[in-house]
Each structure stands twice: as structure tokens, then as C-alpha cells.
Amino acid sequence: MTPAEHAQLALLLEVAGTPKPGNVDRDRDFPDLRFEHFLAGAIGSGAGLRAAEEGKPVGEAFEQAVEGMSHQEGGNTQFGALLLLVPLVKADELSPESVTEVVEETTVEDAEGFYRAFEHVDVAVSDPPEGMDEFDVRRGSSAVSALREADTTLYDVMELSADKDGIAREWTNGFPRTFQASERIAELDGGISARAAQVYLEFLAHEPDTFVAKRHGKKVAESVLVRAQEALQEAREGNSELVTAFADSLVEEGINPGTTADIVAGGLFVALERGVSP
């Protein structure tokens, strides 16, 4: 399979894993966001992922992937995952150094493509730093003139958000959790989507999810982490019922640890490229 195909497969395997507390999986839907929306989003992102594989600029490939992903009724299914996958697919080799080179070489034009991608789907984001309203990603194309005037690259944009956004933090620190997830997936036994679901729970129990913090606040994100730790401990002792109950409760509460799921999708891609077979 090609890197672009492996990226699409990673998106499919990530959503197929279950139980995946708080996120859509093959056993759980939200009222307005269903399993099949994620399947359609993964297929729709293909043209943009192939563009990244062919060496197209990161911003152009990302916007194309998001635009294709948006062609389903659920809205934003994989925006964050694609923001990780595009530079991973584009990299000459799958190493932190190579992917860092890709993202550090992004341009103002790449930033423009990133901002335009927000016009295709509704993405939950934090307010920009004080005095930086002109760079609010929710402005979409309207922010292009400010980007050009300040000569702001896509990497610069990620640096602005890295203190409170887990995907931006991956970009600016060599994709550490993405590569850690791939290594953990490779270590485990069983079906690859089941391994991914286990890694998802382990990661959720290790670090507060930044998407949860954006939507519900820091205290809720920290509470989810503690509950994940309890569920993980029970799972390790052979009690899977608590994990299922935890998964159901987060869905009922509308708490969606999306950043953790996105990072697992990136880890799945790296694992597939390194030879892990589904």
C-alpha cells in the first residue's frame, strides 16, 4: 500500500477501535455524528493525502484533504488527524527529524491553506492569544492579509497554539506522542484496531486531552484523565465492564477526547508504514 493509502487505513482503523471512551467508534454514535460519517471522511480525504505523497505543499494538501473529508453530513470528523497525517505522509522518511524538517519548512502559503480549511468545516478552537485577533483561524481567508503582512508560516501558527493544543504541540516538538503511539501499537498483540483502542485509553490516562479542555475546561479534562486511569487499572485486572461504562458515560456527557484519537490515528499510520499489518 502507498503512504496515502496507509493514512486512509489509519483513519478507518482508528474509528473502528472499541471501546474508545467519549468518541465515535463502531459500537457508539453521537446523535449528529455517526460511525459512517468517519468512514466517509476517511475516503474523502484521499485526494489531499495523495497530494501530500506527491510532494505538494503541506497547506495545499491539507486543505484538499479537509475539503474532501467534509463531503458527509457529520461535519468535522478528522481535521486534527489530517493535520498530523499530511506532514507524516509528505516526509521522506518516518522519523521525528524528517517530519520536523517538513513542518519547519512550511511557508506563508501553507498557513493560508490551513486557514482556508476552516471554511470547509466547523472546528472547535480556542480564542487566539490576547492582541492576536487578526490571526484567529476562524476568520478563514479573511486572515490571509494579516498572515502575509506578518510573514507568518504554518509552523509559526502552530507555535502560537502549542501551549494549549495537543496537535500543535506535536508539530513543534517532533511528533513525540505520535511516534510513541506507533511503538506501543507495534508492541501489543491482537487486532490492530483493538490495539489502537488500548493505546487510546492509555494515552487518555496519561495526559489531559486538550480538545476536552477547550470544550469543557481544564478541570473536566483532568477529571477525565483520573477516570481513564481508574478504567485502565480495572482493564488490566481483567474487568472490562468499567471501561465500557466509562465509554458510555463520556458519550452521554458529550465529552469527546478528540486530540487523543487524532494522535492515535497518526500512530497507526506510522505503525502501518513500519510494517504492522491489520
Rank of each mutant, 00 (worst) to 15 (best):
143 A>H: 06
148 R>M: 03
30 F>R: 08
27 D>L: 15
151 D>F: 00
150 A>K: 15
260 T>I: 07
181 A>N: 00
119 E>W: 05
117 A>E: 13
220 V>C: 01
100 T>N: 09
196 A>G: 03
127 D>G: 06
269 F>R: 00
68 G>C: 04
116 R>L: 03
154 L>Y: 02
7 A>Y: 04
33 L>C: 14
16 A>H: 09
111 A>R: 05
243 V>E: 15
276 V>C: 09
60 E>R: 12
99 V>Y: 02
259 T>F: 09
8 Q>P: 06
147 L>M: 07
97 E>I: 12
102 V>W: 10
51 A>V: 03
32 D>E: 15
263 I>A: 02
258 G>L: 04
49 L>N: 08
227 R>V: 05
158 M>N: 07
123 V>D: 04
209 D>H: 13
194 A>R: 10
141 S>C: 13
250 L>N: 02
124 A>N: 07
252 E>Q: 15
187 E>N: 10
143 A>F: 01
123 V>S: 08
105 E>H: 14
96 P>S: 13
168 A>E: 04
198 Q>D: 12
37 H>Y: 07
48 G>T: 01
108 V>Y: 11
39 L>Q: 13
16 A>P: 01
167 I>Q: 03
221 A>M: 06
177 R>N: 00
99 V>W: 00
67 E>V: 14
136 D>G: 14
129 P>C: 10
169 R>H: 14
132 M>Y: 12
10 A>H: 12
12 L>E: 04
252 E>G: 10
272 L>M: 12
253 E>W: 07
91 A>G: 05
190 G>D: 01
39 L>P: 05
214 K>C: 06
142 S>A: 15
38 F>I: 02
202 E>V: 10
155 Y>W: 07
27 D>N: 14
50 R>H: 09
28 R>M: 07
127 D>T: 05
59 G>P: 01
48 G>W: 02
171 W>C: 02
157 V>G: 05
57 P>G: 10
52 A>K: 01
107 T>G: 01
250 L>T: 06
217 G>Q: 09
210 T>Y: 00
51 A>H: 02
186 A>D: 11
134 E>N: 15
168 A>F: 02
176 P>C: 03
32 D>Y: 15
258 G>V: 03
48 G>A: 03
252 E>D: 14
208 P>A: 09
77 T>G: 05
10 A>F: 12
172 T>S: 02
109 E>W: 10
123 V>Y: 01
